[in-house]
Design a protein around this nucleic acid. Structure first.
Lengths: 335, 335
DNA sequence: ATATGTAGCTAAAAAGATTTAGCTTTATAA
DNA sequence: TTATAAAGCTAAATCTTTTTAGCTACATAT
């Protein structure tokens, strides 16, 4: 029971491979294949369960109906949910998605891009690392259709879908201020990537706007590679200040999760002792004690927009760059 | 700057494509290509950054150094972590992984299997749906190398990697019993898949072993498609019993998460009013109030074993079926 | 009667690698 | 000296599909 090819169908019907191919690619009309033969071919192809050989087709056509998706880490719900929504959207147009994790590393991202291009994905969706500007420029030069998600490079014109990070932080701070909190700290990654930069800038600006004082030690930076330890340290340092903050903002879900865990371990009462808001909703924030107020990103819309933008690029072959910024949503819980 | 092929290298060195191909496939020795030429070819290939055309190679060889992974839902940490570990293990042997979500649906699983096989993945790792026995038999007949993970079909001999579900439940019940709990309930999916079946059977047996009475209403079944609502309902029903349970076991992380959320919403004090243990560790269980005691599956080992088993199959071409059952680990927290 | 057009189909090339079968050339044996 | 073997390489087939260029047969126009 080995695979049937065009040849098999052609032989059984006494026509040429060409005819069969034309019919099955819906080019019968424009090539004046008779209706009669068309129907026969379609019927037999169906019966024999014909599916075109992916390689032969790829080799000849150079396209694959596949898009590559490179994200930071598939085991982070933020990324995995985006991946899921992109898959769904792509499937609507009969595209498949190959997902790969970069671990937020420059080299791994570059390597994955090359691997995926070798596999002849027709386009890419990428959450780039801050060091990936070279390869992004290279992609532009190669005219590979691609869309950046979550982060972008202000100096490079690209397709991009992300959120209004500044407004998100601002709404959180306004919310805290309205609740009477004035001493607000931020635990964040280093401001290397655009999304983080915007969050930190948003933090400074929002404090200013509300006439709140920015204490130097209230911004704590942690690293990607030792996030958990750094977050613990950052919290301990904030708590040990002679003038400790009354509220903490976490810049991402991962920081927020480690942060909550450590605050609980330190028996800090939330929100009585310290109030907490995290960027990114995460399933665990609903369950935690107390449920955490979050700045939620509209993941489904981000993913859908990114997919649509990419598919449009690939189809029209027109190169144009669009930047889509989505609003975020403050979900007020108990923290 | 278009891609270099064998031809280009051959031309530049004044040798044939064949020679270049043989060298780059490490078949120089057995084909008596001189060391001199071998080195030249390798050097130039490196310089020109040659990578073989994936399609041409696939078309000719019929293999792709790619494995397909079909899981329930990539956005569930249980699956996404498995996916991640499988990727890592496969990468060690230069294999790539294509991941796809079945949504635990029969048709989608079958469709994905066909799509992945069309793309000529060299093997498959699958968490099958309970209705997938046909396609599993078909895969066997086609002699496609594959490994089942998390669930299997007792009546079909296959490669399988999973955990000792019965022992996991048993250890949880023993733990509860030692803490003085006697009225223990279970919220689970329908016993359609092997893992769930084993958990339910494990529940009954462990109760018997500890001489605990099994109340009929203490086993509540929920469905895959309306898990959240069903869990809420199940909990409400358990709470409303004239003789309500003192402890609840959740059969999976998803059930456990919804369960905890609802217990908190109902202001049930944990563990004072009701003690809780869930199968599967989940990041949220560490953060929740209180942190949830869980039966943890050794995800990394499961994934690694599955990958190794598959790679071994693909290499040796020998058909043999191995069933690997891993021990689970009770992580005692505060619930 | 010849040219032009068109309907309906097909032969053959092309894509880029792998692999088979075999061709030179030189060394060794008879 | 001639036959045999071995070393070192290559031409051509092959994988399956898409696509180009064009063939055949019949109808219509000149």
């Amino acid at each position: 029971m080995k695979k049937v090819g065009l040849e098999e169908i052609a032989k059984q019907l006494g026509v040429s491979k060409t005819t069969v191919s034309l019919v099955l690619n819906n080019k019968a009309k424009e090539n004046r294949i008779s209706d009669e033969i068309m129907k026969k071919v379609k019927k037999l192809a169906e019966e024999l369960n014909y599916t075109p050989n992916h390689f032969a087709r790829g080799l000849r056509k150079g396209t694959t109906n596949t898009v590559g998706l490179i994200i930071g880490d598939i085991s982070n719900p933020f990324f995995s949910r985006i991946a899921r929504y992109i898959e769904d959207e792509a499937a609507k147009e009969d595209y498949h998605v190959i997902v790969a994790s970069s671990d937020e590393k420059k080299e791994k991202t570059e390597q994955l891009i090359h691997i995926l291009l070798d596999k002849k994905v027709d386009g890419l969706i990428i959450t780039p690392n801050y060091q990936n500007s070279e390869i992004v420029l290279w992609l532009k030069k190669q005219e590979v259709p691609f869309v950046l998600v979550d982060r972008y490079f202000p100096k490079i014109k690209t397709n991009y879908v992300g959120v209004d990070n500044g407004a998100g932080i601002s709404s959180a701070i306004t919310h805290l201020y309205e609740q009477g909190y004035e001493k607000i700290a931020l635990i964040t990654y280093h401001p290397l990537m655009s999304n983080i930069k915007e969050r930190i800038n948003g933090f400074r600006e929002a404090l200013k706007k509300n006439n709140l004082r920015l204490h130097n030690q209230y911004i704590q930076e942690v690293s990607y590679t030792s996030t958990e330890d750094d977050v613990k340290l950052a919290i301990d340092q904030l708590l040990a200040l002679t003038n400790p903050p009354r509220a903490i903002l976490f810049a991402t879900n991962k920081i927020g999760l480690y942060g909550m865990e450590h605050l609980n371990a330190r028996n800090v009462r939330i929100p009585q002792d310290i109030s907490v808001i995290s960027f990114d909703d995460d399933p665990a924030f609903r369950l935690s004690y107390p449920p955490v107020t979050v700045i939620e990103q509209p993941l489904k819309e981000i993913a859908t927009d990114a997919a649509r933008l990419l598919l449009e690029q690939m189809k029209t072959k027109k190169i144009k760059y669009e930047e889509i910024v989505k609003p975020v949503n403050l979900i007020i819980r108990k923290s």
